[in-house]
């Protein structure tokens, strides 16, 4: 059995960061729209492939391709809401969940027809792909960038939610849509900005996910399980909950490797989630009686 090493905690933090970027987007959107959107995984895939198209196929610099991707996926996210989910907004959460599963089927097969089964890689600049030894831990520049990005995103999100009108409206709507509407908040506007933001984060998260490994048309369909689980455990609608949930998932996955076959990593992550839910049934930072 391998001995304890600090490296496992660092790797847990990195995994958690990759999950957290996408989790924040998903949880904000679920909090406002009041349903769990499985097709969010396909927005993640779209983000990865959009970055690939801009940076590899069309040879944009990577750091120009990423913001462009965020815009592209944000627009796609709003478009998805307008065409499919907004017309169904009076249905209950379960019908919307199954409908989002349908959207996920539709898009993932569309992506497969478009991009085939080839595994692609992003061209990452050397300063990101080089590995650095910090103490006893070896990590890459990409890893450091992702952790830094999560910290920056969290700070910006905090400022937005606390200081700006849209942010306050989002919080109010997530807490109590009825009350928010009475106080003159336009739910359509809040919904628009939320889907836009969620899309941008999906684009960014998909790009990070691709930078740590590879791209293939089902990548989003696969990662959505981990993202969704961390969001539910954190408390749906609460971005800080998504961070906490991602932390539980990431840490339990990487630390478990010391004790059992890494093939059981995902099973361990799920077991940790179940235990977290048994201790706090409403989610780590969730409100009672919501989703």
């Amino acid at each position: 059995m391998p001995e304890f090493e600090v490296a496992y905690i660092v790797f847990g933090l990195i995994s958690a960061s990759v999950i957290a970027v996408m989790g924040i987007g998903l949880t904000l959107q679920a909090g406002i729209s009041r349903f769990f959107n499985i097709s969010y995984g396909e927005l993640v895939t779209l983000g990865a492939f959009s970055t690939y198209t801009f940076s590899v196929t069309w040879a944009f610099p990577l750091f120009l391709a990423i913001p462009v991707t965020c815009v592209v996926v944000a627009v796609a996210s709003v478009g998805l809401n307008w065409t499919v989910f907004r017309p169904m907004r009076n249905s209950n959460a379960w019908v919307l969940l199954i409908a989002s599963l349908g959207v996920s089927f539709f898009l993932s097969n569309l992506f497969f027809a478009q991009w085939g089964s080839r595994v692609r890689r992003l061209d990452v600049p050397d300063f990101l792909s080089d590995s650095h030894k910090i103490g006893d831990v070896v990590i890459t520049g990409t890893d450091m960038m992702i952790v830094a990005a999560v910290i920056i995103i969290s700070m910006l999100l905090y400022l937005m939610l606390q200081r700006t009108g849209v942010g306050k409206a989002m919080r109010a709507t997530a807490d109590d849509p009825g009350l928010a509407a009475v106080t003159g908040i336009n739910p359509e506007k809040v919904s628009f900005y939320t889907w836009l933001l969620a899309g941008a984060l999906a684009g960014l998260g998909g790009t990070f996910f691709a930078m740590t490994g590879f791209l293939e048309p089902q990548m989003g369909t696969r990662i959505i399980l981990l993202i969704g689980a961390s969001v539910v455990v954190g408390g749906v609608g609460n971005p800080w909950g998504a961070l906490a949930g991602a932390f539980v998932v990431g840490m339990s996955m990487e630390l478990s490797v010391m004790f059992i076959n890494p093939g059981l990593k995902l099973a361990v992550a799920f077991a940790a989630l179940v235990i977290a839910l048994l201790i706090r049934p409403q989610g780590i930072l969730g409100q009672k009686g919501f989703l």
Partner: peptide, 18 residues
């Protein structure tokens, strides 16, 4: 050494360390 790699993970650093 006998490890299995779970598919669809965000990172394989822990396995690589082993």
């Amino acid at each position: 050494l006998d490890i299995d790699l779970a598919v669809d993970q965000p990172s394989y650093s822990s396995e690589a360390l082993q």
